Computed example of a mutant assay.
Amino acid sequence: MASQTSPKHIVFDIVGTLVSHEHFYDVISTRLGTALEPHNISGRLLGYAWLETAEREYTYLSLSGRYVPFAKIFQAIFFRVLHFAGVHEPRSVANEEDVEYFIQEYKNCTVRPGARECIDRLQKSGWTVWAFTSGDRERVKGYFNKGDISIDNEHIITCDDVGIGKPEIKAYERVKERIGAGKDESLWFAAAHGWDVSAASRAGFKTAYCTVLEKEPLEDVFGKTDVTADTLPALANKVIEAA
């Protein structure tokens, strides 16, 4: 067990965990709501399907040995998602200008309530806080700047940096190498995605899961985490206590 004087590191997922998708869903509903109504598609469900489909294709490509940045896949796949949603002529509902607008507004998503408190509490308790994201660095830095999150550029690691997408175990192992934590140091991974903490656990991290995004932990599917909490400040408290 690490002593109280041993360095402590915690790595956070960003989008979905510290940053909410709600603004992104709202702008889709506002801009396309009327056009989507005849197809019985809500802006929120379309936004969710778009994000999830892009993440799947991003992951599959990485697993196959072809790494493509998430941002490129995300922008390219929009009309395919509309097709699968049941819109026979996707470009009759939206155009490239709409897609570009949504991509820009995605950068304006905001940090979750309690996110700043969570990070500040850990840092004041002696933790070094890192970020590991499939998002691009400048977008993530923008989220942090607007939300007053004190994770500096040197502590942001992107999948683009390591050339491997989550949830490949090698991606988390690369993060461990970047951190350089010794065997006596506490090393944790925190996320609101069950698959993310599950993979991090198999890479050797202690894990902290927040239900703020997915609501249902589904431990029979993803396995147990070392700590689980419903809010980000509560997660910070439990990690500090556990360590």
Rank of each mutant, 00 (worst) to 15 (best):
D98E: 06
N108F: 09
P69L: 00
F70A: 09
H88S: 10
Y106D: 03
Y67K: 06
K107V: 03
R91F: 00
I73V: 12
G114S: 11
E97G: 15
F102Q: 09
Q104S: 15
Y101E: 06
F102M: 13
V68P: 04
Q75S: 10
V68W: 04
I73S: 00
A115W: 11
Y67G: 03
I103S: 13
H88G: 11
A115V: 12
A76M: 05
F78S: 02
V111E: 09
R91P: 03
P90H: 05
V68M: 06
L82E: 05
E100M: 08
I77Q: 05
S92L: 06
C109E: 11
A71E: 05
N108S: 15
F78R: 05
T110V: 13
V111R: 07
V68L: 06
E96N: 11
Q104Y: 11
H88V: 07
N108K: 14
E96H: 14
V93L: 03
P90D: 13
S92Q: 09
I103T: 07
L82F: 01
R80N: 14
N95V: 07
H83P: 02
E96C: 06
N95G: 11
V68H: 01
K72N: 08
E96V: 02
I103N: 12
F84T: 00
V93D: 03
R112W: 08
K107M: 10
Y106K: 11
F78G: 00
E89A: 08
Y101K: 08
I77N: 06
P113R: 10
N108A: 12
D98I: 07
E89S: 07
A115N: 09
K72Y: 00
C109R: 11
V87Y: 06
Y106L: 13
P113A: 14
Y67R: 08
E96Y: 10
L82G: 05
Q75Y: 01
F74K: 04
A76P: 07
F70M: 07
E105L: 14
E100S: 15
I77P: 02
H83Y: 12
E89Q: 11
A115D: 13
G86L: 04
V81H: 05
E89M: 10
K72G: 04
E89D: 09
A71S: 12
E96R: 09
P90F: 04
E105T: 07
F102E: 09
G114P: 07
F102R: 09
F79T: 05
P69N: 08
V81M: 02
R91G: 06
A115M: 09
E96K: 12
Q104P: 01
P90M: 08
E105S: 15
V87H: 02
A115G: 11
H83S: 14
F70K: 07
Y67W: 02
A85H: 00
C109D: 13
V93R: 02
V99A: 14
R66L: 13
Q75L: 04
L82R: 04
E96P: 05
D98Y: 04
A94N: 02
Y101I: 00
E100D: 15
Y101Q: 07
R112H: 10
E100C: 03
Y101G: 00
K107G: 12
R66M: 06
R91D: 15
F78N: 08
Q104H: 14
G86K: 03
K107C: 08
T110S: 13
V93P: 00
N108I: 03
I103V: 15
G114R: 11
V87F: 05
F74W: 02
V111Q: 13
N95Y: 03
V81K: 07
G86E: 12
K72L: 14
S92Y: 04
I77E: 06
Y106W: 13
R91A: 10
